[in-house]
Write a protein that binds this DNA or RNA. Structure first.
Lengths: 210, 210
DNA sequence: TTCAAATCACCCTAACCGGGGGATAATATA
DNA sequence: TATATTATCCCCCGGTTAGGGTGATTTGAA
């Protein structure tokens, strides 16, 4: 955990041109030091510990162990390092998986070099440097469908189903009768054209009804 | 939907000093026009349609109908307006609720006036202008607990439970025996010290195990 | 005033859930 | 190498739940 006046950066990226490009861009920035760069996780795994990186730029599309798989392993080797994901694809699932696995931020490769350097700085200060398009995606992922076919009460019931609650638990929680819960669930099934809790949740989540 | 060369802004904020402060700060910015300002949603409801706002700054802590309740109603009256939430509290639940109800962005009141103006611009361009502290919170909300007591398989099983699947559905999905699923669930219950699906999910989500 | 929403009622059968009690082989991890 | 964890499977049990069918009433909004 050496914290002098430069930020120690390690780059893991298989494309040599991009790798060297980043290394150059970041290295020339005052206050930044690119300690090392690797073409794959497997290569990095042995030596990265000695690099004592504070921030790791990690490509998702890596040969061998890919970025998502590499993330938790990296976190084990250098737990205090912040990991910034770099990728060309801004697929929703990929991003959320990466964040879940402990990435501190996420940048698409079309980000300007200024933005990248800025992000490294921000992530080191504890901020969450999402690029604008990622932020948009995250916000969108939170937003419910305003044209939901489900009524307020039905939505409420389905949410509790999503919490693993059974009919009687739901009834107790909403201060309504067991039979009323049944009615709501039946109506939900009809509206969503399903006939099981699992399918109802699947459809509802896909369409952002809950 | 008049879109000339100025961004039409409406402010809903009960504190007169803050309201006028924002109005002044934004109004003096070239390219921005504060069409109107209101002290409450109920006041705004009748007239805001005529304002044709493109961006609405909405305070959460409002007398009468509060910001969260106001959001969906606002969205109904002026569906094309982007709503930026303003608040002093950056409580996690509040933020996620607001985003779920259709807020396009979220700013804490300690944001600089530059940041606010910048955010209005960004939100109008379709970006998601989260302040740094909000971004941090969102990223954190995605991150799993790396010290989870659950094994990989157990985590997987519990996730499927969270999707409303029953034992046999889980067994089929993971290509394992029904009894194996039972064992996993029993072990999950033991580790989390619970004895029902609902409690397991509650504990697991609270501790970010799934 | 008409329609959706929210509430409650009773029928049924098959399946599910959770609590016991085990066992075995593979894989870590110390 | 030894021990612990993990993943897999097996049996018994009783009480509950799920989902299908078919209703009714009241409230509130369009």
């Amino acid at each position: 955990m050496s914290s002098e006046d430069v930020i120690r950066v390690v780059i893991i990226e298989d494309d040599e041109i991009i790798r060297n490009g980043y290394a150059f861009l970041i290295g020339k920035e005052p206050g930044f030091h690119v300690v090392n760069k690797y073409a794959s996780f497997d290569e990095a795994a042995k030596k990265i510990s000695a690099d004592e990186p504070e921030v790791i730029l990690l490509d998702i599309e890596l040969p061998g162990t890919n970025g998502i798989e590499a993330l938790p392993k990296l976190k084990k080797i250098v737990p205090d390092a912040f990991v910034l994901i770099l990728t060309v694809y801004d697929s929703e699932k990929l991003i959320f998986d990466a964040l879940a696995s402990g990435a501190s931020g996420y940048l698409t490769k079309n980000s300007s070099s200024f933005k990248i350097v800025e992000s490294i700085r921000e992530v080191k200060e504890g901020g969450g440097p999402m690029s604008i398009n990622i932020a948009r995606m995250v916000i969108k992922s939170f937003q419910r469908n305003p044209d939901s076919p489900l009524s307020k009460r039905e939505t409420q019931v389905l949410e509790l189903v999503g919490n693993g609650k059974n009919r009687s638990q739901i009834a107790r929680e909403l201060f309504i009768d067991l039979e009323t819960v049944r009615s709501h669930i039946k109506n939900i099934y009809m509206k969503l054209d399903v006939n099981s809790r699992a399918d109802a949740l699947k459809t509802a989540r896909k369409n952002k009804l809950i």
